[in-house]
């Protein structure tokens, strides 16, 4: 059990190192001098040179990378070029919006996708199955930011039930904050729910054909009991893999949906940093997104090992 876990963790560390180097490299060859951006166009050359040396910009690239990496590991994420505040502060503020948003979206997609998938598999070929298939096809094909626009059009602009965007902040209380996140998380969740419903349906159908389900039925369990006690728990394995893969899309989707709803999350932070050429912020946010995606995928691998004893020795 230990060896495959260690192998994956080592792979994770190496991949993260490679990614951090790639992000740093791309960001440091960008046109535009951070020191010049901070001081403006009227800065005197000697002031500029002083700031460059203070920021360490005059040192060779590998040294700067090493210093940046050490900073990251010790919690010093640098200082935003445009805002002049620590990047960590901006990232934490953004994460306080994006992470709850992603969590709500995952929850909604599970609550919607799993039951739909199981229901379709249990009544294969029925109207329910056809309906779920249609929902899946439409959901997978529809851009989440467009769903966001439609939600605003119907529930905010026309019916006036919901705020059309913005975020009151957590200090305004949990209820207004969660209300502000509801429509964005639905927009983010619907395409994911469609994928989940589809995968759950296929996985459940496969398991329903297995011998142990037939044995359970032969033992006298009803169809419903066999389905929920034996088929569904076993069908969840491939579903977990998909949730891991979907996480990457969820992160990307957050950038779009945050822009639609004007949420001050990590995605908006990244877009603003891009517009303002704030390299220190861009580096950290991009690295954070990529790290989240990779870590989640390794966690999925490990969950797989924990849930499926057959894989422990195979790896």
């Amino acid at each position: 059990m230990l060896r495959p876990v260690l192998t994956r963790l080592l792979g994770l560390v190496l991949t993260l190192l490679a990614i951090s180097a790639a992000v740093f490299l791309v960001m440091s060859v960008l046109p535009g001098d951070p020191a010049a951006i901070m001081l403006g166009t009227s800065a005197r050359p000697d002031t500029l040179a002083a700031l460059r040396s203070e920021l360490g910009l005059d040192r060779p690239l590998p040294l700067r990378y090493a210093a940046w990496l050490t900073g990251l590991l010790t919690g010093d994420l640098g200082r935003s070029v445009t805002y002049g505040v620590p990047v960590a502060k901006l990232v934490l503020a953004g994460a306080a919006v994006t992470l709850p948003l992603a969590a709500m979206a995952i929850l909604i997609s599970l609550l919607l996708g799993l039951p739909l998938g199981v229901a379709a598999a249990a009544r294969r070929g029925s109207a329910v199955d056809a309906g779920v298939s249609l929902f899946a096809q439409l959901g997978i094909a529809t851009p989440n930011f467009w769903i966001g626009l439609l939600l605003i059009l119907v529930f905010a602009a026309t019916l006036g039930w919901m705020p059309s965007g913005g975020f009151p902040g957590w200090q305004a209380g949990a209820a207004p904050a969660l209300t502000a996140l509801l429509m964005p998380s639905i927009a983010l969740a619907l395409p994911q729910a469609a994928v989940l419903a589809r995968v759950t349906r296929t996985a459940t159908l496969e398991v329903l054909g297995e011998d142990f389900v037939r044995t359970a039925r032969a033992k006298g369990l009803s169809r419903r009991q066999a389905l929920w006690r034996h088929a569904v728990p076993n069908a969840l394995l491939p579903v977990i893999t998909i949730i891991g893969l979907q996480f990457t899309f969820l992160v990307a989707g957050a950038v779009l949906v945050e822009n639609v709803f004007g949420l001050p999350g990590l995605g908006r932070l990244a877009m603003q940093a891009l517009a303002q050429r704030d390299v220190t912020v861009m580096q950290v946010v991009v690295l954070l997104f990529a790290t989240l995606a990779i870590v989640v995928n390794v966690l999925v691998d490990l969950a797989y090992l924990a849930l499926d004893p057959r894989l422990r020795n195979a790896a």
């Binding site: 792979g11 991949t15 490679a18 990614i19 790639a22 992000v23 791309v26 960001m27 060859v29 960008l30 990457t248 899309f249 992160v251 990307a252 950038v255 779009l256 990244a270 877009m271 891009l274 050429r277 861009m282 991009v286 997104f289 990529a290 790290t291 995606a293 990779i294 995928n297």
Partner: peptide, 18 residues
Amino acid sequence: DAVFAFPPILSAMMLSAL
């Protein structure tokens, strides 16, 4: 694996700066 960790929106943002 490393390339796959960058959703296209993210790499597009990095590349557009470049």
